[in-house]
């Protein structure tokens, strides 16, 4: 008698347990911290973002080099772009210089350097680096002209912008 009853009770308790589980349904994941996680990601990207300052009017494929240095302090870098125009129908296929947002000629460079100097603090003016972003198919003639102009306007620290070559190439 006893064992039988015991078994029945056991059966019942088992069923009860099963039933309670079923009534609970699927456990829902707590999503209340999801916004926090997303905000964290958001802040990360906000901090690391540098907005592209200039719209590119020339097409530039940078050459590769292995002995590269990182350009520190982006605020102290001014850029000169040289390459073939993106809009070939309108501007032809000859290499052109782009300063800021517009095409320029070699004679505009001293003016550009002066403007870049004006935009910086007086203490920082000596530290300005001019980064030359030049397409790898450009002829050296135009690059040399730019360099001569930079010399004349005393912007002597330059950086030939290159992509880092992967080792073993």
């Amino acid at each position: 008698m006893f064992p039988k009853l015991n078994l029945k009770m056991l059966e019942e308790t088992k069923m009860a347990r099963f039933k309670t589980k079923k009534t609970k349904g699927e456990a829902s994941i707590n999503t209340s911290s999801l916004p926090d996680i997303i905000f964290m990601l958001l802040f990360f990207f906000m901090v690391t973002t540098t907005m592209r300052e200039n719209t590119m009017k020339v097409k530039i494929k940078l050459p590769e080099a292995s002995e590269v240095q990182k350009l520190e302090k982006k605020s102290l870098v001014s850029y000169i772009y040289i390459g073939t125009p993106v809009d070939k129908k309108m501007y032809g296929t000859n290499s052109r210089i782009q300063l800021d947002d517009a095409f320029a000629t070699v004679s505009n460079i001293p003016e550009f350097v002066a403007k870049e100097r004006q935009a910086r603090d007086e203490a920082d003016r000596k530290l300005i680096t001019t980064s030359l972003k030049v397409d790898s198919n450009t002829r050296m003639g135009i690059v040399t002209d730019v360099k001569q102009q930079l010399r004349k306007s005393n912007a002597l620290k330059i950086n030939y912008s290159t992509r880092k070559m992967l080792a073993g190439k």
């Binding site: 990207f45 690391t48 973002t49 540098t50 907005m51 592209r52 080099a65 002995e67 590269v68 240095q69 990182k70 350009l71 982006k74 870098v77 680096t129 980064s131 360099k147 930079l150 010399r151 004349k152 005393n154 912007a155 002597l156 620290k157 330059i158 950086n159 030939y160 912008s161 290159t162 992509r163 880092k164």
Partner: peptide, 17 residues
């Protein structure tokens, strides 16, 4: 909008005029 590229290049000093 993020551009993560780090500017790298060969730094040189031009001779003074």
């Amino acid at each position: 909008t993020t551009t993560m590229d780090v500017d790298t290049g060969i730094t040189r000093m031009l001779p003074p005029p």
